[in-house]
Simulated scan of single mutants.
Amino acid sequence: MKNVLKPSIAFAGLLLAASPVYAADYVIDTKGAHASVEFRINHLGVSWLKGRFNTFNGEFSYDESNPNASKVNVEIDTTSIDSNHAERDKHLRSADFLDVKSFPKAKFVSTQYTDKGDGTATLEGELTLHGVTKPVTLAVSKVGEGKDPWGGYRAGFEGTTEFKLKDFGIDYNLGPAAETIYMNLYVEGIRK
């Protein structure tokens, strides 16, 4: 009996050691307003117009021991654009820009996360905006992770990217200084 038991225990140990470690899944904390999707675009070459999308949701998977397996999925309600100016926001929602009647949602789905080993990473993915899907790359920094005061666990990241509006079929002429939009994403996730 002892001879049979030892190999069984050894085999079980090998199975446990070979079992993959799974990433933790997080939901982006939009209910607590601990996340934001912001943008800026140059105005006439003399200043910056800033804004945000007030309504979005998403989730991500992250495992500190295997960060390259991370995945992100975010959906943005384009009707929620807010540049702190009602008339401008009405124009941004129109067919000249976001055409929210035809395209009420924008979406980002990651395809690859490359950890640089210093708290930063490159996140590649597909952005769907204005009915057009194109690859975009975000520079990502990990802000931190840990237990929260309510018994949960959180992880936070920030990311930046830029792209040309015309690449997504938005060709309203704002002048050469306003061809590129710069996005900043601040994400705090609550582990499921």
Score class of each variant (00 low, 15 high):
Gly117Arg: 05
Phe157Gly: 07
Asn73Met: 12
Ala69Phe: 04
Lys105Thr: 15
Thr111Ile: 02
Asp82Ile: 04
Lys142Glu: 13
Thr78Glu: 03
Val136His: 02
Pro67Ser: 01
Ser80Arg: 10
Phe168Asn: 08
Thr78Ala: 00
Ala86Ser: 15
Leu98Cys: 00
Asp171Asn: 13
Val74His: 05
Leu92Cys: 03
Ser94His: 10
Asn68Ala: 07
Thr180Gly: 03
Gly152Asp: 08
Val74Thr: 00
Ser110Lys: 09
Lys71Phe: 12
Asp82Pro: 06
Lys166Thr: 15
Gly117His: 08
Gly169Ser: 10
Asp99Ala: 07
Lys166Ser: 15
Ser65Met: 03
Asp99Gly: 01
Phe157Tyr: 11
Lys147Met: 09
Gly117Cys: 05
Asp118Ile: 10
Leu165Gln: 13
Arg154Pro: 08
Asp89Glu: 14
Gly151Pro: 15
Asn173Leu: 12
Arg88Val: 05
Val143Ser: 02
Ile181Ser: 00
Ala155Val: 07
Gly159Pro: 07
Ile181Arg: 03
Leu98Tyr: 04
His91Thr: 13
Phe103Thr: 03
Glu179Pro: 14
Thr122Trp: 09
Tyr172Met: 07
Tyr182Lys: 09
Asn66Thr: 14
Ala177Phe: 12
Asp82His: 10
Lys134Ala: 09
Asn73Ile: 10
Lys101Ser: 15
Asn73Trp: 08
Ser94Asp: 11
Ala95Arg: 15
Lys116Phe: 12
Lys134Met: 13
Val143Asn: 06
Gly117Ile: 04
Asn68Gln: 12
Asn66Ile: 10
Tyr182Cys: 02
Tyr172Thr: 07
Tyr153Gln: 04
Pro104His: 06
Lys116Asn: 15
Leu127His: 00
Ala86Asp: 15
Phe103Ile: 03
Gly159Glu: 04
Pro135Ala: 06
Arg154Trp: 12
Leu129Val: 11
Ala121Cys: 05
Ser110Trp: 07
Ala155Ile: 12
Glu75Met: 11
Leu138Tyr: 14
Lys166Arg: 14
Gly152Trp: 14
Asn173Arg: 13
Glu87Gly: 08
Thr180Met: 05
Ile76Lys: 00
Tyr153Asn: 04
Val132Gly: 04
Met183Gly: 02
Ile170Tyr: 03
Tyr113Val: 07
Pro67Lys: 13
Thr180Ala: 03
Lys71Ile: 14
Gly156Asn: 05
Val100Phe: 05
Phe163Ile: 09
Arg93Gln: 08
Ile81Ala: 01
Gln112Phe: 09
Ala177Trp: 14
Phe157Cys: 06
Ser102Cys: 11
Asp89Phe: 14
Lys105Glu: 14
Thr160Trp: 08
Thr161Val: 10
His91Gly: 06
Thr133Asp: 00
Val74Pro: 05
Leu98Gly: 02
Thr78Arg: 06
Leu174Ser: 06
Leu123Tyr: 05
Pro67Gln: 09
Gly156Asp: 04
Asp77Met: 08
Glu162Gln: 12
Leu127Gly: 02
Pro149Thr: 01
Leu138Lys: 01
Thr161Lys: 07
Thr78Asp: 06
Lys134Asn: 13
Glu126Arg: 10
Glu158Trp: 09
Ser83Arg: 06
Ser110Glu: 01
His91Ser: 01
His91Lys: 13
Lys116His: 15
Lys164Trp: 13
Leu92His: 07
Val100Gly: 01
Phe157Gln: 02
His91Val: 13
Lys105Val: 15
Ser65Tyr: 14
Leu165Gly: 11
Asp77Phe: 07
Lys71Met: 11
Phe97Met: 04
Ala86Cys: 02
Ala86Gly: 13
His85Phe: 09
